[in-house]
Write a protein that binds this DNA or RNA. Sequence first.
DNA 1: ATGTCCCAGTCTCTGGGA
Length: 292
Amino acid sequence: MRIATWNVNSLKARLEKLVWWVERTNPDVLLLQETKCTDAGAPREALFSLGYELAHHGSGGRNGVAIASRTPLTAIETNFGEPLAPRTATASDDDPLAEARIVAATTAGLRAVSVYAPNGRVVGTAPYFAKLDWYERLSRWLEATPKETPLVLGGDFNVAPTDDDVWDARACHGGTHVSEPERAAFRRLLAWGLVDAYRRHHPERERYTWWDYRAGDFHRNVGMRIDHLLVAPAVAERSVFAEIDREARKGRPTPSDHAPLVVDLDTSGRPFDAGWSGAEERIAARRQSARK
DNA sequence: ATGTCCCAGTCTCTGGGA
């Protein structure tokens, strides 16, 4: 089974590139971020004709997350199971918890979650603390998930977990994505038991998933590894391959500023969802009690 | 090089966000 995550920087603007990439890569489950679509405006038909169902969560403009899968999507949960607050228009209104940044669904025996963490802009500003608050909310949501859940929490985390995940730690010092509080928030996800699937297969440095469009950053490999597939231990044990597809960051039509990340699972042998039966109900019950 | 791309609205350009 092939799982992928990709911040596409507009699903509509990227549709031709996405079709090319999906036909080339054939993921079974694809997590998408920054779709910038409304639920009604999401290109469901185009994905359906490629063989995918789509669970989409977005209000248009910015943000927006989705899960495309070759197998049915059930128990779809958006925004931490809470209704999204109405959009309040002005750019200075920065409330990530009112934005479409998380969608979860059960598919292919997995609990798949697509996240788009806030950017944070500048350390010490209101958007930065809002980013940390959003991570706090994500951790509480995660910690209400039973440990045996075959979880795949993937997306654009907007955090480079270590200095090995940035092109130049000194140049990045003092900026967002690398600050200690952001890295601590990321490590709290790992403390639940999640495994960084890419690092399980690739210890090397200079492997990034995002490069700024400007200044030829991609061609100079001035980037950061901020997109991740974090998987439960039972999923990690089955992972046999991980790669960042730099080809998708090149050429025309215009690429996203992020490259997709792919992980392959060996699903031969015992059923992948062993022990997972009934867990949707257990998750729902724990979320209910966590809200009280 | 603060050098690109995408979106919404002010709508064939501009400002904001990443």
